[in-house]
């Protein structure tokens, strides 16, 4: 929650100082996230990969706070780190024995994946730099949970209902797929 505190303590700083503080926070988090993400996709130990994923997810939550999306940030922590990662750890535990370590990825495959990854990044980066050259994110104040909930239950009610149906379908689907019979 340090980023949040930084955001709230910002009125005491001058605008220039606040900007510097925000950018420093961003840089630290971004570097950590990228490194953790890279380690996640390269480490041989599956459990370590899950822990690196936690770091990335926490970093994403931090970015949300930096962008003033407090509710989404908290949800990110609770749902992703609290639930989904635990689910992954269960998955790893239940499939233990097949892979203690994920080894022996052939170098050609890594090369191929790396090339595709770089290609994806190159195209996206070119498009982004081209389109949003100097656009500034200018958020006056963090959005409140009330605003988000109002929006969900009025403008976005139909997607909301669709998601609820999707969750039900996924629930049933997961049970059907994974049950023993």
């Amino acid at each position: 929650m340090t980023a949040l505190a930084a955001l709230e303590g910002m009125d005491r700083l001058t605008s220039g100082e606040a900007l510097v503080a925000q950018n420093v926070a961003f840089a630290i988090m971004a570097i950590t996230m990228v490194v953790a993400a890279l380690r996640m996709v390269t480490t041989r130990n599956v459990v370590h990969a899950a822990l690196y994923l936690v770091v990335v997810l926490a970093g994403v939550a931090g970015q949300f706070l930096l962008l003033g999306a407090e509710f989404v940030g908290v949800t990110q922590v609770m749902v992703y780190i609290g639930a989904i990662v635990v689910l992954f750890l269960f998955g790893i535990m239940l499939t233990k024995g097949s892979f203690g370590e994920d080894d022996g990825v052939s170098s050609e495959k890594r090369l191929m994946a790396g090339l595709v990854g770089l290609l994806v990044f190159g195209v996206m980066a070119a498009a982004l730099v081209d389109s949003f050259e100097d656009a500034e994110v200018a958020r006056e104040a963090p959005s409140t949970t009330a605003e988000v909930s109002d929006s969900i239950f009025s403008t976005y009610i139909v997607p909301f209902e669709a998601v609820s149906v999707l969750l039900l379908a996924a629930l049933i689907g997961a049970i059907v797929v994974a049950r023993k019979d």
């Binding site: 595709v116 290609l119 994806v120 195209v123 070119a126 498009a127 081209d130």
Partner: peptide, 8 residues
């Protein structure tokens, strides 16, 4: 990605 690049 190539198609997206072409579009861009």
């Amino acid at each position: 990605t190539v198609l997206a690049g072409v579009l861009i």
